[in-house]
């Protein structure tokens, strides 16, 4: 027998009514109630097994001991395990031969980019474009050499890093203490002429002799620079601190130099290789 059904008119309503449309107060299906209990049960089980209740210095750990940190550590572990083979190949391959192997090229470039963004971009810029006083690594002008071996050497031991015995030092004297103001002006105009910029020819006339006496030992007689000393080429279009008369005069008077830390104690051999390869392939490598 069917249960006698209430007609729609007699069915109880919630009392809500909009434009003559009434809302029935019909019972919910019972299984719905069960799903509600099931969610409560789920919550209880969850509290037991997973971190849940906040405490002063953390939360209840749950019997599984699960944490996102541990997940991350496991993922990192898995990645390094997966990369173990290619890491070994990277270490075994001389850096000059990396380019011949497409897998290693890709691995070194991508890994080097990550290393560069983490450790190098603070000074050299995210795109390796450098900044005033920090060399641009994309161009074809290198203070200490731009082939792969030279870049690796610079990375390992840094430049002017007191903490590394094999670092390379050089320092330009502050010529404000040595030369007269007029002499510095003359040198400035002469240096401008070296790179073909507009200059005062009368002032520059006294330049060659001063340059020969004070600058040529590092920058070379023609101003082409000297990589053994990290002395910049003064005849090209690239300037570390700026190439206008005022900046050049300031540099001669007070001297300037930068410092790069040695990385062999901070990042792995493989990472140095990767980042050297990455920097080399940015467009300026020799």
């Amino acid at each position: 027998m069917r249960k006698p059904k209430l007609s729609d008119e007699d069915y109880p309503t919630t009392g809500h009514e909009w434009d003559g449309i009434r809302e029935y107060d019909k019972p919910m299906p019972r299984w719905w109630l069960w799903t509600f209990y099931a969610t409560i049960l789920f919550a209880l089980v969850y509290v037991v097994f997973y971190p849940a209740i906040p405490l002063v210095n953390g939360a209840t750990p749950g019997v599984l001991g699960w944490s996102t940190r541990a997940d991350l550590a496991a993922e990192v572990e898995a990645v390094s395990l997966r990369n173990a083979d290619i890491d070994q190949r990277l270490l075994d391959t001389p850096i000059g031969d990396l380019g011949a192997d497409p897998d290693l090229t890709r691995y070194a470039t991508a890994g080097g980019a990550a290393v560069f963004r983490t450790y190098c971009s603070q000074c050299h810029g995210a795109g390796a474009q450098g900044a005033k006083g920090y060399p641009n690594l994309q161009d074809d002008d290198w203070l200490w050499g731009g082939d792969l071996e030279a870049i690796v050497l610079t990375l390992k031991h840094g430049i002017r890093d007191d903490g590394d015995d094999d670092t390379r030092f050089s320092q330009m004297p502050a010529f404000g203490d040595i030369l007269e103001t007029g002499e510095i002006d003359a040198l400035t105009q002469y240096v401008l002429s070296l790179s073909g910029q507009d200059h005062d020819a009368d002032l520059a006339a006294a330049g060659p002799v001063l340059f020969e006496e004070n600058c040529a030992s590092c920058h070379g007689e023609t101003g082409l620079g000297e990589r053994e000393q990290g002395a910049p080429n003064l005849t090209d279009a690239i300037w570390l601190f700026g190439g206008d008369a005022e900046t050049i005069g300031h540099t001669i008077t007070f001297s300037r130099y930068g410092m790069m830390p040695a990385w062999n104690t901070r990042i792995s051999e493989a990472q140095i290789k990767q980042v050297a390869f990455y920097v080399h392939q940015l467009g300026g490598g020799e």
Partner: peptide, 15 residues
């Protein structure tokens, strides 16, 4: 490339 937008080479060429 937008970072950097261009690179100046030693002979003044823009790349």
């Amino acid at each position: 490339d937008r970072n950097p937008q261009f690179v100046k080479l030693s002979d003044g060429t823009i790349r």
